[in-house]
Design a protein around this nucleic acid. Structure first.
Length: 493
RNA sequence: CGGGGCGUGGCGCAGUCCGGUUAGCGCACCUGUUUUGGGAACAGGGGGCCGCAGGUUCGAAUCCUGCCGCCCCGACCA
């Protein structure tokens, strides 16, 4: 089987978009569906999402949150209550107008919408759930004793995007959205920042994807928020990806939905709110941070299968027994391990397949090396191979998984460092953006006009206004006006 | 919505300009045999309303008209 194009991946350097699509398909993460802009997440992709969910869910619970579930539909009257939010999402809403179909009078084999079944009030398919949730919270809150409310939901949402891309921007996507209600502004701001920190920790410790933490500029802020905290990652093509956002919503939704509480001084006040979310887009980020021209590369902490044992070539009793023992031992150490005894496919085919699917470690168990008490270990991140003694192998593997995790983070971090540039004038800004892309740290006068001008002329946007690092003052690279601190620019997904 | 490209077995394509046997190739699939240390070989086999609808013609994947869909690049966005 030579030159099999179903598994040839377009190199990144040749066509980055194509490469990305190839990875998604060849690693069997997802595929396009019959519904425009909506993907089918395949078992391997969904297993990855489940692992991400499990970790995040625990982090949410460890910070005091509970899960709940709210409806898919939002009555239009509720949706429009918070004006800015409604305006921000209006252009990308799917709307349910009818509740019944009927046989087409002109063609009995077809169905048409029954005009008699028009809804009195349209239902919006949620693009986000603030409206329905805050309408509910009104009934849950009357006293300061009812606060805080710390609720998260795992759900799907629909945003009718003009152009979609698998995982990065689909019309329907899976996410979690936390919605919290607080007594004071201070508490709400702290909550929003806490969840930004949770996201950053998840991205770096589990996805091995370094992120910039910061706040959004006015123009990039979430519709209806007072402040948006973001984590921004850098992809291998030099473009930024907004990987998670956490919003301080002020009292906007409390006012729109009339959610008040009585303080312990018997005064009536509006509730303070936050919302925060990450989505299946993270899988896109994961792919574009680590994967190579051979396929998917997954960090061990999230990989559905961490270790694959492949007997070479004929599975006889002895090889199988060794594989089974090793598997038992590794499972006992909480390693996600599988063995491939399929006799129909060759050793080489299998290895390529697991490289494609991003399995962090494959163990080749064969007679030749076993005579010396050795097995062949191949690590996906560096593509290095080595012979390792069977004696103490489980401990070695366990240790190696940790090393791979760390190595992937460091590699991504070095890439980001190499693609983060401090510039002081607009010409250099443009030149860096063109030549190597990445994050550019520059002074900005804080006005929307300047931001807009830069976006128009270069396509770069302010990804975030950093909250840590070098926060010294300067002058705007364009207008020369005072700048409070450098901000992070990049072209973004 | 603007610009570009494309619709031919599951996937990727050739054939279309210049109409003419039974529409072809690679991969995948099925059966069998030999294989298996980085994508095995051979033999046999199955699978096509050539995107849809009209039209021209003795004859259309091919020419004409209309429609539909998909992909890529922008505008919009997590």
């Amino acid at each position: 089987m030579s030159n099999q194009q179903s598994s040839v991946i377009t190199p990144r350097a040749e066509d980055y978009s194509k490469w990305y699509n190839n990875i998604v398909k060849e690693a069997q993460l997802a595929e396009n569906s019959a519904v425009r802009g909506c993907m089918v997440i395949k078992p391997h992709g969904y297993a990855l999402w489940e692992n991400m969910q499990a970790v995040l869910d625990k982090m949410f619970k460890d910070t005091g949150h509970q899960n709940a579930y709210f409806p898919l539909f939002v009555p239009k009257s509720l949706f429009e209550a918070e004006e800015k939010n409604a305006e921000g999402f209006a252009k990308e809403c799917a709307v349910v107008t009818h509740y019944r179909l009927m046989t087409d009078p002109n063609d009995p084999s077809k169905l048409v919408v029954d005009p008699a079944a028009k809804l009195q009030e349209e239902l919006i398919v949620r693009p986000t759930s603030e409206a329905i949730i805050w309408n509910t919270y009104r009934n849950w809150i009357s006293s300061y004793r009812d606060l805080p409310i710390l609720v998260n939901q795992w759900a799907n949402v629909v945003r009718w995007e003009m152009r979609t891309r698998l995982f990065l921007r689909t019309a329907e996507f899976l996410w979690q959205e936390g919605h919290t209600a607080h007594e004071t502004k201070k508490e709400a701001v702290e909550e929003a920042q806490r969840m930004q920190e949770v996201y950053a920790r998840f991205a770096e410790d589990y996805m091995a994807m370094p992120v910039w933490k910061g706040r959004k500029s006015d123009s990039e802020r979430f519709a209806g928020a007072e402040d948006t905290y973001t984590i921004e990652a850098l992809m291998q093509d030099g473009k930024a990806l907004q990987a998670g956002t956490s919003h301080f919503l002020g009292q906007n939704f409390a006012k729109a939905f009339d959610v008040k509480f009585q303080t312990n001084a018997n005064k009536e006040e509006y509730v303070w709110a936050t919302s925060w979310g990450v989505s299946t887009r993270l899988i896109g980020g994961l792919i574009m941070t680590h994967s190579d021209d051979k396929g998917l590369v997954l960090p061990p902490r999230l990989a559905p299968t961490q270790v694959m044992i492949v007997p070479i070539p004929k599975v006889n009793g002895e090889l199988k027994e060794i594989a089974e023992n090793l598997m038992t031992e590794l499972k006992g150490m909480d390693v996600r391990v599988k063995a491939d005894y399929d006799k129909k496919r060759s050793f080489g085919f299998k290895l390529n397949e697991y490289d494609l699917r991003g399995v962090p470690i494959t163990i080749g168990v064969g007679k030749r090396d076993l005579e010396n008490g050795m097995v062949q270990i191949a690590r996906r991140d560096t593509l290095e191979k080595e012979l390792v003694p069977l004696e103490g192998l489980a401990e070695y593997i366990k240790e190696l998984l940790g090393q791979i995790q760390d190595n992937m983070f460091l590699k991504a971090l070095r890439f980001r460092q190499a693609h983060t540039t401090e510039v002081n004038d607009y010409d250099t800004f443009k030149e860096v953006l063109e030549s190597k892309g990445g994050f550019i740290l520059a002074h900005w006068d804080g006005t929307e006009e300047t931001e807009e001008k830069i976006k128009e002329e270069t396509k770069a946007t302010i990804r975030c206004i950093p909250m840590e690092g070098d926060l010294s003052e300067g002058v705007c690279m364009i207008t020369g006006k005072p700048s409070a601190q450098r901000v992070v620019f990049a072209k973004a997904y």
